[in-house]
Design a protein around this nucleic acid. Structure first.
Length: 321
DNA sequence: AGCCAGGCTCTCG
DNA sequence: CGAGAGCATGGC
């Protein structure tokens, strides 16, 4: 095992702690990545090899700097370059936030929800394939259940790499999931239907008919209409992929239940909000930064939940005294 | 013990 | 074209 290290300037408005925390759902280990002690680590595939990339902030650097490391058998400069690029993508570093932050000055409600989330960036996925699979897993079920299934999938069909006594798994390749078959996917608690969807997506990515490079050259609307042709991918999933895999800052999953609820709570005193009403509202109010608004609102939901849980455990602790 | 959770497809009027 | 059932699991 070798480790190569490089340093890069941190982007403006970038909080590694918030972004890596959001990426790993504030729970540390996620199968493919870990955020611990200020270091975000992620397993990456390099052909038939596996490497681990790490990012941390350099203390006291002004202007702010990030250190990026890549570890693996025969790690090369190519691996280093890929790791740098992958980290930028996974941590949303290339997305321009300035327009969104000036929009906040005109939206006091969103601004107060953003509150202490200043510097959070929309976390990304390593590939369109990964984003699609994760989105399909997450359809309809709660984020907790989705996480359990995702970890089982990654732990079963991903490729492990052990570094410093910690094992991470590279997200499974399309081929690995094709080999797993629908039965193999059902074994990690996916429904028969979702297992079929994922098989179909894996097939399309493996044979090149669903091509990331081609998609990334297309407009948001064209990507969505292309993706929804695939069985199992609706508008919600396509918008999610647009944001997570293609870094489109205006993507907006208007059908999202949690999103509807939080917007309703913040802006409409909890009154029910139809998908159309939410679409119109977001278009008028947040475009072309709807994806960033979505990211911050989800982070806001998580933060509220964490605050509640901490409050609850403190109350239990106090009661025990 | 049910009902609901960051949907999608298929079927039926 | 709109409404409704079915899908799988985990948490409250």
């Amino acid at each position: 095992m070798q480790t190569l290290i490089t340093t890069i300037p941190a982007p403006e408005l970038f909080d590694l702690h918030l972004t890596a925390g959001h990426q790993t759902h504030y729970r540390g280990v996620a199968g493919a990545d870990v955020y611990r002690d200020g270091v975000y680590s992620r397993a990456l595939r390099r052909g038939n090899r596996v490497v681990i990339a790490r990012v941390r902030s350099i203390d006291g650097a002004d202007p702010a700097m990030l250190e990026i490391g890549v570890t693996g058998e025969d790690a090369t400069q190519d691996d280093m370059e890929y790791a740098t690029q992958a980290m930028a993508r996974l941590l949303g570093m290339d997305i321009d936030l300035s327009g969104f932050y000036s929009l906040l000055e005109r939206d006091s409600v969103l601004s107060s929800a953003v509150g202490s989330l200043h510097g959070l960036r929309p976390p990304g996925s390593e590939s369109v394939f990964e984003a699609l699979v994760i989105a399909i897993i997450g359809q309809q079920i709660s984020s907790v259940v989705a996480r359990v299934i995702r970890e089982a999938l990654v732990g079963t069909y991903g490729t492990p790499i052990n570094v410093d006594g910690e094992t991470l798994y590279v997200f499974p390749s399309p081929r690995a999931l094709l080999e797993a078959g629908t039965d193999g996917l059902r074994a990690v608690k996916l429904s028969a239907r979702k297992a079929e969807y994922i098989q179909d997506v894996a097939l399309r990515v493996a044979d090149g008919s669903l091509d990331e490079v081609r998609l990334s050259a297309m407009s948001d609307d064209d990507v969505v209409s292309e993706l929804v042709k695939v069985r199992g991918i609706g508008v919600w999933t396509a918008q999610w992929v647009l944001l997570r895999a293609l870094g489109r800052a205006d993507a907006f999953p208007a059908g999202d239940l949690a999103l509807k609820r939080v917007v309703s709570d913040l802006y409409f005193e909890g009154a029910p909000l139809s998908e159309q009403a939410l679409t119109d509202f977001a278009m008028e109010r947040w475009s072309p930064h709807r994806g960033l608004a979505t990211t911050y609102l989800f982070a806001y939901i998580r933060q509220q939940r964490l605050d509640r849980e901490q409050g609850a455990s403190k109350a239990i602790g106090d009661a025990a005294l």
